[in-house]
């Protein structure tokens, strides 16, 4: 009698988590070297120096901090101190905007490249050169020309999500089976109708895969971009807590970034399943 695969996988997952947390807890328990200090001096020093407490927080500290953030996710103590929920909302807003702009540009352009061998050859060198550029390398240029840090961050998201979508759309469109196109041609379907009723459904799975890669990259980049421009967002939160050398909060932020990234990825995976068709 065996439990289902899902249940067994869950059990293994929980076991791995428990082992990891236990190892983490034990590893941060130890005390480092301490010196004997006179009390007046000790009062001016931090816990790491006085009691030898590990600079790395344990799982219990992190848990307590997460609870603190969950209790008050939307507090607003002025421009430089906002709750985790507000920071996440800013980041998601930026990603959504930059990403949607990229969708609007990449998919039509990808269609054009995929349908026309001439454009494909002509634009290929530009795409090949611009694609491998790290999105953050655009940041100084964006700040200098756009003259607005918020828009610059959105531009960076736009430029980093553009390429995977563009390349995947072009590839998907170009590799639609020629039989289908020939059938469309014998039926004398117009080019616009052919694009929407034959090519789009056929290329949709590849396009959505491109979109899924893009959203992952966009979410990776927003953190770095916000660390650079500051102000608001989860990336700023990480930077601000780094400034305070609060490793606990940085770990909390890492967890939150991971969870949101997973949700975004799963949403597009679901979209991908909707447009997939059996051949």
């Amino acid at each position: 009698m065996h439990a289902s695969l899902g249940a067994r996988a869950l059990a293994v997952s929980l076991l791995v988590l428990a082992l990891f947390l236990a190892a983490w807890h034990v590893a941060t328990q130890g005390t480092g070297p301490t010196q004997v200090m006179d009390p007046e001096y000790a009062k001016l020093m931090g816990a790491t120096a006085t009691t030898g407490k590990s600079a790395m927080p344990g799982p219990l500290d992190v848990g307590a901090t997460i609870w603190q953030h969950l209790k008050r996710p939307f507090y607003d103590n002025g421009p430089n101190d906002k709750g985790l929920g507000i920071q996440l909302a800013y980041s998601i807003g930026r990603v959504a905007l930059g990403y949607l702009l990229a969708v609007v540009v990449a998919i039509p352009l990808g269609f054009l490249i995929g349908m026309s061998p001439l454009m494909s050859r002509a634009l290929d060198p530009f795409i090949q050169i611009l694609k491998p550029v790290s999105p953050l390398a655009w940041m100084p240029l964006a700040l200098y020309t756009i003259k607005d840090s918020g828009l610059s961050a959105i531009f960076v998201i736009f430029i980093c999500s553009l390429w995977p979508m563009l390349v995947n759309t072009a590839f998907g469109v170009a590799s639609v089976r020629s039989e289908w196109l020939n059938v469309a041609r014998t039926l004398e379907v117009g080019p616009l109708r052919r694009a929407f009723t034959v090519i789009l459904p056929a290329a949709a799975p590849t396009i959505v895969t491109g979109m899924r890669i893009s959203v992952g990259i966009a979410w990776l980049v927003i953190v770095a971009a916000e660390m650079l421009v500051g102000g608001t967002g989860i990336g700023y939160f990480v930077w601000n807590e780094w400034n305070n050398l609060s490793i606990t909060n940085v770990i909390v932020a890492i967890l939150v970034i991971g969870v949101v990234g997973m949700i975004l990825d799963q949403a597009l995976a679901r979209l991908g399943r909707l447009v997939t068709f059996p051949e």
Binding site: P79, N80, P140, L143, S149, M227, L228, V229, G230, G231, Y236, W239, N240
Partner: peptide, 8 residues
């Protein structure tokens, strides 16, 4: 407004 660095 807190800012991330001198160049910014």
């Amino acid at each position: 407004v807190k800012t991330a660095g001198w160049a910014v």
